[in-house]
């Protein structure tokens, strides 16, 4: 397990360097003017362009540029917004809110998704199975921003069950509806994954053995099958964190939640490239580290991976 952990950590380094370089390269070296739109609809004055190029070392060779940028990132320097506020300052304040929203969504996703998948798999072709299949399909087909807007209209505005927007009150209750919407699509995928997986595992040889051992059905499913079915679920949750983070841009925009997603949402509208790149890079770093954790968890769940 120790060797496995070290190996995973080492494998992570080139991915982090590669991914951040990719972003940096695409943003600063692709055709196009990085200062475009920063000065309203007119092109920026030469003096501003010169200052911008100086600040971001755009006259250095690409690798040097990237190196300097990453040296800043490591020290928590993600550049400054159009308004002159350091990106890192905004991020640290907003990250707590987004983390709260994200963890709530992840919790809702895991609990409901796994439960729905298990119930569907236990009686394939039954009533619950069909309800799960149809409803998940509908949720997957609806884009997040439509679901969010419609639920905001009905549950927030018409029936006044939840706050319409969140604003400065980031309590559990205020974030409940946004977290639920954020979780919805992932939840649907997870339920389907869990269903397929569990029903496949229920037909496996070791389940037959467990039944031959005279174990109660609850133990056959709850201990022997579930543990095996959770292995791909954990991988999915890690991968899906990326989708959840993309979703926060939409959800925090619609529900006006003062998190990182909202910051990116507004920066997109302001065409503030530095903020977008800085904030997204920060999210991707969090995503990669979360996946490292998932990998280690995967090793714990599946001894075939970690006990070679």
């Amino acid at each position: 397990m120790f060797k496995f952990t070290v190996r995973r950590l080492l494998q992570m380094i080139p991915v982090i360097i590669g991914a951040t370089f990719l972003i940096y390269w695409m943003v600063f070296s692709l055709p196009g003017d990085p200062t475009a739109g920063k000065c309203g609809d007119r092109p920026c004055p030469d003096a501003y362009v010169a200052q911008f190029e100086e600040e971001y070392n755009l006259n250095d060779p690409l690798l040097v540029q990237y190196g300097k940028y990453m040296a800043g990132v490591v020290q928590g320097d993600f550049g400054e917004s159009y308004y002159g506020v350091p990106v890192s300052e905004e991020l640290s304040e907003r990250f707590v809110v987004t983390a709260k929203l994200g963890l709530m969504a992840l919790g809702i996703e895991a609990v409901i998704g796994i439960l729905a998948g298990v119930l569907a798999a236990l009686k394939k072709g039954g009533f619950i199975d069909n309800v799960v299949l149809v409803s998940t399909l509908a949720v997957i087909a609806l884009p997040l921003f439509v679901t969010a807007s419609v639920l905001q209209l009905y549950l927030g505005i018409r029936w006044e069950l939840f706050p319409v927007t969140v604003g400065s009150d980031t309590s559990f209750y205020a974030l409940l509806l946004p977290a639920f919407v954020l979780a919805s699509v992932s939840l649907a995928y997870l339920a389907r994954l869990m269903r397929t997986n569990l029903s496949e595992n229920l037909g496996s040889d070791y389940v037959r053995t467990a039944r031959a051992k005279g174990l109660p059905q609850s133990r056959v499913v709850g201990v022997h099958t579930l543990r095996n079915s959770l292995i791909p679920v954990v991988t999915f949750l890690g991968y899906d964190l990326g989708a959840l983070m993309g979703g926060t841009i939409v959800i925090e925009g619609i529900f006006n939640i003062p998190g990182v997603g909202n910051y990116i949402y507004r920066a997109i509208n302001d065409r503030d490239g530095v903020v977008v790149v800085g904030a997204v890079t920060a999210l991707i770093l969090v995503y990669l580290f979360a996946n490292l954790v998932v990998d280690l968890l995967y090793g714990l769940l599946d001894p075939r991976i970690s006990h070679d």
């Binding site: 692709l30 977008v276 790149v277 997204v280």
Partner: peptide, 25 residues
Amino acid sequence: GRVAEIFFALPLILGAVVILTALPP
């Protein structure tokens, strides 16, 4: 495989947001 892993590290919407903000209108 290594190259794919790097691209795979960029989630769809997040990555698209970065690239599309950078591309000229």
